[in-house]
Design a binder for these strands. Sequence first.
DNA 1: AAGATCGTAGGACAGCTGTCCTAGAGCGCC
DNA 2: GGCGCTCTAGGACAGCTGTCCTACGATCTT
Lengths: 188, 188
Amino acid sequence: MAAVATREQIVAAADRLFYHGGYEHTSFADIAGAVGLSRGNFYYHFKSKDAILDAVIDARLADTRRMLEQWEAEAPTPAGRIMRYVEIVLTNRADIQDYGCPVGTLTTELAKLEHAMLGQAGRLFTLFRTWLREQFVLLEHAEQADELAMHVLAFSQGVAVMANAFHDEAFIQREVDRMREWLHTYER
Amino acid sequence: MAAVATREQIVAAADRLFYHGGYEHTSFADIAGAVGLSRGNFYYHFKSKDAILDAVIDARLADTRRMLEQWEAEAPTPAGRIMRYVEIVLTNRADIQDYGCPVGTLTTELAKLEHAMLGQAGRLFTLFRTWLREQFVLLEHAEQADELAMHVLAFSQGVAVMANAFHDEAFIQREVDRMREWLHTYER
DNA sequence: AAGATCGTAGGACAGCTGTCCTAGAGCGCC
DNA sequence: GGCGCTCTAGGACAGCTGTCCTACGATCTT
């Protein structure tokens, strides 16, 4: 098997396992089992568990950039684009109810572990923050753009934590509706 | 030393360590070191790690009930009491920036671990939810009381995750101000 | 003073962790 | 055929995990 394909398989499996079970709780043996490789052989592809996490974060950053570009292509207005972000809690509601937000839960876990890769994980949040800020600038709220971006991020994190805790789909829908109305007051 | 005092010391130390470093990441050795006991001797006080977690959750439930009673005694109006809840993200901002919300992060972690004690941890959320709902009933919004309670909970969780990720005190203050204005629209 | 009870230290136990090494299989190229 | 490279399996390694047991010191009761 080509090494590059195996590496991608490892990263994909690790991404899923880190999201579902948490970073520390996921062992080399778990990832090896998911990919179908022997545990000891991992050193050939990644020299440490941190290196896998680094690769997973890089992959998530790339995926996120692709998703944001797609949103920009599909939604013509900045408000529509912001709503695309807001609605991911609906789109991904099944996973969110089971595992929370992939970005929020990873960042929270790494902060508790005082893990060196915490800064890297923070780039995922910053990517969304910067993109949302740009949309609010386009909405002609340049002055408060960053504050509004942070508010939208906090919305999604709050909904994710509560949806994960209570498994309440109606709650998610209500909060998205509430957010849509709030966003309308910033449209022009 | 009296066994009951030692037990309380263990629970207090475990509570702090679980909050700061997470449940799974905290070992018997860590707790033993914090209390000044030998690791093997723990079996005398708690027959398993889950039993410690159970005791920690019970202690947090009792502490929370005390806090809610105090809020009721100190704040005469339901809106004032709700604001007491909203303002804990300011009151505890130092800890929240370092470790997130104690309730939210524990629930999120236990969900990923598929831990048997997840239901117990959920009672912490439910305690706040029920109390907030009662306050909105007193505000004569009985019909939407539970929805509004969930919205306030989501607010606090969102702010906690973002404050933990970005360490931004001004953001916390702005979100509390925003929440205060929102709450005014429900006062009469 | 003798005995029972309470709380403790220390270590044994199997099992798992991340890391690292060695040997060899499979393959293309000369 | 023989060389060299890529990729792999399997196991060794020290260290840690939660659990559990035994032996002993301190304290209290009678």
